[in-house]
Design a binder for these strands. Structure first.
Lengths: 336, 336
DNA sequence: TTGAAAGCGCTAACAG
DNA sequence: CTGTTAGCGCTTTCAA
């Protein structure tokens, strides 16, 4: 609980003025090597460290070399992978990363982003919750750079990095339709989430392309956990006229569906959105729509640091492609 | 790129002194409601936000309400889960979290921790790399609270939260020995990592308990990736006299071993350290030694915030238990 | 109830 | 090469 020594303490100990200490610390050449050595000894002896707050106060406009990253849920491997690449990109540029999870709550998003901004982050990478982002807008006006990732910024004039969720979902469902499935179950997360909306739209698109419509009783929205998804899946499978195939709207829900399928896994087709570890090792191996969270994070970081470096080009929207990884579960034919 | 308005701008706009603005901002009662209202209007109009650096400079000793969290690799689900609970615990206390990965490099650990300390974090939760932590020690002296998690602090006088790796590994290997296995392969991560050392020691303990020793040719250290682990596993399986069982020292390595086992999975027993998603869905389901990363994170956060709040009790070491989750792969008998 | 002056720890600008 | 002065944006102290 020692008091941090100040520059004055160092100056006194070295018998010089604070200016000289400042010069030594900032590596300015105009100091006699002998003096510099004396100062450095004093610094070491006292364990002096520059007071960052005072430094930034004086040399203002200096970046804090800190960015904020707000994801939906850090415990989700998808966001963890995204966060890890952002952190990598940041460290390469001598930046550190403040991290937070919104858990899909606008209130929490606002709280966390405000806390980040109070610490004067130079930029923010945000997986935005649906809703109004007035507070983000005011931060933008103050010069904080913002990039949205995974979901668009809902009217916010900022760069964003997205995945072609709708097309990828459509292609996946078309893959099932092509194999003769008609009764395809849809298992979705909360409808308020943009990516989920897109994937559901793609699900409907695939049907529309064939001039048909999904069976309403096979569409289940709103499962937020693996267990909830398992329950909804079980309910679908227990229908008098159950689905012959399932499309699940994210990794957690895919896991829940797998839980519920159990010994029916080789009879009901399944395509899940999101790659997950060991998908290739299950029986049958699981066909998925694979996104690349690392690419999302890396691209977002690249855009953000370009803006921080002064890039003032028009707002960009980068769309990354997801790809269908065919493994077996999606190729199970409907019963004849 | 607007310049942030200062308190003086607000004071000017409201026709008062900066002191009055300061009082309004800090909610001091001694301000005429009418004046306060005028000031508040000006604040809103200019989009004023208090300059945190200046504030902390003046009211010194104020906490930054920021902690740093350094894990080995954020992309690893184990550390992601740990990080998520730390972040939760922090937010409950109005704290934000700076995050970083060391990737098992002492240099990176030092760089990241230094960067955190330069931002005056109130505390650090660290998964320490092996080696000397002199720089951490100097931070400790300056009053920064530190808690080590997952691995001990190597002589650092700080609280730590660990898992009984050695005992858990011994029990797992004993489980294999009890079922008649003698040729048990060991697949390890880098030996420099404390947890890995402990698990290897437990592996040897189990043999020692039966008065035997592991087969040296079946022990392979140093695989740092899933692919490397798969290669080493394949090499073991291709020996003239291959192992009848495998013990893998963490999740990544377990996955690699599973890759390599492929169609031999129902003939070679396997117990892996670390739980992983879908372990129960593989064929055969995988017996694991399960740790609880959320409990590690929560406990570490609890200890850290207690210290930050002024707890000066003697250094504590909390040991959490890992437990053997029996699923099938670990119960495959040796060929007769 | 409000304001003026001083100073937190540091550095820019100028002297010497 | 080194020191002095002033002031970053804010709050403390004291006076009005």
């Amino acid at each position: 609980m020692t008091v941090r020594p100040t520059m004055r303490d160092v100056a006194q100990a070295a018998g010089v003025s604070t200016m000289t200490v400042s010069r030594v610390i900032n590596g300015e050449p105009a100091v006699l090597p002998e003096t510099a050595a004396r100062v450095e000894r004093a610094i070491r002896r006292l364990g002096y460290q520059r007071n960052d707050a005072a430094w930034r106060l004086r040399r203002k406009g200096q970046p804090t070399l800190t960015i904020g990253l707000l994801v939906d849920d850090l415990a989700n491997p998808f966001f963890a992978a995204l966060a890890a690449t952002v952190e990598d990109a940041a460290r390469l540029r001598n930046y550190v990363v403040l991290i937070g999870s919104s858990n899909d709550s606008l209130r929490r998003e606002r709280e966390v982003v405000s806390a980040f901004c109070a610490r004067q982050v130079d930029g923010l990478i945000v997986v935005p919750v649906v809703g109004s982002h007035r507070f983000l807008r005011s931060q933008l006006a103050l010069g904080t750079k913002v990039v949205c990732v995974d979901r668009p910024g809902n009217g916010l004039p900022v760069d964003s990095v997205l995945v072609d969720n709708r097309i990828a979902a459509r292609d996946a469902v078309r893959h099932l339709l092509d194999r003769g499935h008609r009764r395809i179950g849809y298992l979705g997360d909360r409808e308020s989430i943009w990516t989920i909306q897109q994937r559901y739209a793609g699900f409907r698109d695939a049907f529309a392309d064939t001039g048909t419509e999904p069976e309403p009783e096979l569409v289940r929205h709103g499962s937020r956990t693996r267990a909830a998804a398992a329950e909804l899946t079980a309910a679908l499978l227990n229908l008098p006229h159950p689905p012959t195939a399932l499309f699940t709207s994210n990794d957690l829900i895919t896991l829940g569906a797998i839980d519920a399928l159990a010994d029916k896994a080789d009879r009901v087709a399944l395509i899940g959105f999101d790659e997950f570890a060991l998908a290739d090792k299950l029986t049958p191996p699981v066909t998925v729509v694979a996104q690349d969270p690392a690419a999302l994070g890396a691209t977002a970081a690249q855009l953000l640091f370009a803006r921080i470096a002064g890039d003032t080009s028009p707002v960009r929207e980068v769309i990354l492609r997801a790809r269908l990884v065919i493994r077996g579960s999606g190729e199970i034919p409907p019963p004849t």
